[in-house]
């Protein structure tokens, strides 16, 4: 498995921590999915509630690597300030950088993303940029200092799977040595299998598990799906053919016509 900023993660699943029915189900989902990275966020704290510390004590017990995000940031300044706050709180250089450009699709503002990636990379952050499958943007992100790319499968929380297979395949083959995580839009285990079969290195998802009718069973399904896709890619699949080719040998077949 490729390394993410020098770190070899134990399993290629990065799992979000939002929207679970309860903290105990969140914990069970992490165990069943075998996720090795947890994405977390920062939100306003009330001195009375101390909800942040309560949540953080749960996450620490998961014993997984932490990937803070800048979710909800719409400007470079917001994202950069949030990243600095996250680095202090979570004590990690990793940051899942989101600069949202459009509300309906939560599509990244790729211009702001490149600018923020440059600022943060120069400041010692290890940036995981939430981007599209656009090759030119990918090249600019790498030039800005990113050593990982996180192209979307489809819009955040949509569950649509991989909307642009051609674009994702092109991205994968254009930058074969760059670790890439499919982030956002995964709705079914089969979507994750497909992404791994295409040669992506990890999957980041949240809603597909958290909002399933049975989140814990879905978490287990994703662990098998990702393993299946990963092994399938590693096993060097056959090339698809346009015409049928019999798999049963013709030699020795009986002649039974009159």
């Amino acid at each position: 498995m490729k390394k993410f900023y020098g770190v070899e993660i134990e399993s290629p699943l990065m799992l979000g921590t939002a929207q679970y029915p309860s903290p105990s189900i969140l914990i069970s989902c992490f165990k069943k999915s075998k996720a090795s990275v947890a994405t977390v966020s920062l939100r306003r704290e009330s001195s009375a509630s101390d909800s942040g510390n309560n949540f953080w004590s749960i996450i620490k017990e998961l014993n997984v690597r932490i990937l803070p995000n800048t979710a909800g940031c719409h400007t470079v300044k917001e994202a950069v300030t949030t990243a600095h706050m996250a680095r202090e709180i979570f004590n990690t250089k990793w940051i899942k950088l989101e600069v949202i450009g459009e509300e309906d699709t939560l599509q990244p503002d790729v211009f702001g993303l490149v600018e923020a990636s440059k600022i943060l990379s120069d400041d010692g952050f290890e940036v995981f940029p939430y981007t599209t499958e656009d090759l030119v943007v990918a090249d600019k992100l790498l030039n800005a200092g990113c050593k990982v790319l996180m192209p979307w499968g489809s819009p955040i929380g949509s569950g649509q799977g991989l909307n642009n297979i051609f674009g994702l395949k092109a991205l994968r083959s254009h930058f074969p040595d760059i670790p890439m995580v499919i982030d956002a839009g995964i709705g079914l285990p089969s979507h994750a299998t497909r992404a791994m079969e295409l040669g992506f290195d990890a999957i980041l998802l949240n809603t597909a598990i958290a909002k399933a009718g049975d989140p814990v069973t879905m978490a287990e399904a994703f662990s098998y799906a990702i393993l299946s896709g990963s092994l399938g890619k590693e096993a060097d699949p056959m090339e698809p053919r346009d015409m049928a080719v019999p798999s049963t040998p013709i030699f020795g077949k009986a002649f039974l016509d009159d």
Binding site: V40, S41, R43, S51, N69, T82
Partner: peptide, 24 residues
């Protein structure tokens, strides 16, 4: 955290106080 003790507030300043929360 270290810079807070060297920072002087003035009337109308806006402070954001954030803590760990769920995220995707």
């Amino acid at each position: 955290v270290d810079d807070r003790e060297f920072t002087t507030l003035k009337e109308g300043d806006k402070i954001e106080v954030l803590s760990p929360q769920q995220g995707g």
